[in-house]
Design a binder for these strands. Sequence first.
RNA 1: GUGCCUAUAGCUCAGCAGGAUAGAGUAGCACACUCCGAAUGUGAAGGUCGCCGGUUCAAAUCCGGCUAGGCACACCA
Length: 572
Amino acid sequence: MINIKEEIAKRIAEQASDLTQEQIEQIIEIPQDQKMGDYAFPCFRLAKVYHKAPPLIAKDIAEKLSGDSMFEKVEQVNAYVNMFLDKQQVAGIALESALDRENFGKSNVGEGKTIVIDFSSPNIAKPFHIGHIRTTVIGNSIYKIFDSLGYNVVRTNHLGDYGTQFGKMICAYRHWGNDEDIERDPIKTLLAYYTKFHVEAEKDPELNEEARKTFYNLEHGGEDEIRIWKWFSDLSLREFNRVYDMMGIEFDAYDGESMYSDMMPGIIQELKDKGLLQESQGANVVDLDEYKLPPALITKSDGTSLYCTRDLATAEYRKEHYDFYKNIYVVASQQSLYFKQLFKVLELMGYEWAKDCVHVPFGMVALEEGTLSTRKGRVVFLEDVLKKAVEKTKEIIMEKNPDADAASIDEVAKEVGIGAVMFNELSNSRIKDYVFKWDQVLNFDGETGPYVQYTHARCASVLRKAGEDAVAKAQTGNVDTSFLTGDAAYTLIKLLYQYPEVVQDAADKYEPSIVTRHIIDIAQAYNKFYHDEHILVDDEAEKLAKVALTIAAKNAIANGLDLLGVKAPDRM
RNA sequence: GUGCCUAUAGCUCAGCAGGAUAGAGUAGCACACUCCGAAUGUGAAGGUCGCCGGUUCAAAUCCGGCUAGGCACACCA
């Protein structure tokens, strides 16, 4: 696709030779008001070079640019050169790429590069609650975005299936466990035991000691501990997979923490050999004082391992097996300091690839009653949220469309309801904290997933009415773009043109919300176009041009939603 | 105590390698379905961009200092 900004910069560079084309490209901006043009070039910075007032320089440049066929007009307003592009040319460029659904917004910049992305990673035997939605949905979207840019992306679910907590869980089971209850409703039952453990441990500190020993046994090959642990793991995975299935999320590897337990001694030895390990208060640490970081704890005073040790092993394993270009961790912002320590230790171990490890943090989810707390039983289950969203959607569909057939209602309600929850999660910058509110996730008006999906369904509906022949003809892109120069159509066209850069930007920043916001803009622009102009008009040439734009908008929305992991139904 | 993050309309948020009059959605108000899907669109209203300084021709955006909230800071992950 032609890079318009680059073309403009090239032309200005010919006029103002004291700046390089790159510098000019940096200065060129998109005015906030469309009335001021498609692109603008502020001339303040040239004033010093030319010893002339900025408006005079702007006037000069504007005059020289005026003749170029690229522009409809170029005018000087104060210190700005405001450029209005030839709308038909832009429409031609945008349509050409957007009509090609398969390739629109995609690229091959990542060819030959592998990215490992660690996300979701819930703890075994604990509920999959609303707090997990962030890493899961954001991680999935980042995977989709990089995948669409040609990277080979490995999704790994680093299950929290190890650590002292399992000592606690096993203890609790031994004290109060009932196998039938567990089989019937594993997570909720295990959660009840876990909660009870903490209550009891308050009264009887001996329990904590017992739990520590139990984990020690687990880590050192205790048969019964391993049997119970394995059983809990399997049950949990079954539960998690049900939720992943609902959201259409898959993984390439389920390598939990336990998988790396064999590598612990090796890591510890390696740290010793490299002179990094120090004994401190009975524990083994890597001192990071020099880097203004607290020491990284490698082993506890009782000799058992810690997550840091396991994470070091995990990183090494990933480098060896995947030779990653980036190793991404989608983990809550609470752990920012921890990841700084982890990456620093890797660096000190002499691994130059430590710089390729990135922590992608996100903010906290709280409930109106306070922070989520598994122990205190203050949780909202993700599955319940998804189910409620589907029910609500079903009600809305039946209300709006009483004679739709039952089978399709169920299918669409799932796509829209679950899509709404996922979309909602991806609407804001990931770093923001938020408070979970039912009426907020179940709101389907305005800037929401259903709004965007509705627009997609509306496009599909228009195309059905247009008929196959018209769609096939429009699909070639061989249409008269002079019918697409109205304000609404042109706004939409510019958004379509920008879409590929937006995807790249979202990848650079690991920020799916950039895509979310852009497809909201596209949906708004299409809806406005739809209201302002009649699409299926009698005039064949005009109709084909507008149908082509409808196809393009539909493709952009469908591809954008796909990057979010959200479905784009043709009817709803 | 130290570090990191956040602060923009009643509410939820965009905008932040500086640029022209700070944008959406939502709530409330007023409109538009004999017309391609009203889960839509239109209009009016709504702001000391947390506060104080600084840099600059130009600051919501950069720098410094405050304030408020969140998070983290050794045997949990």
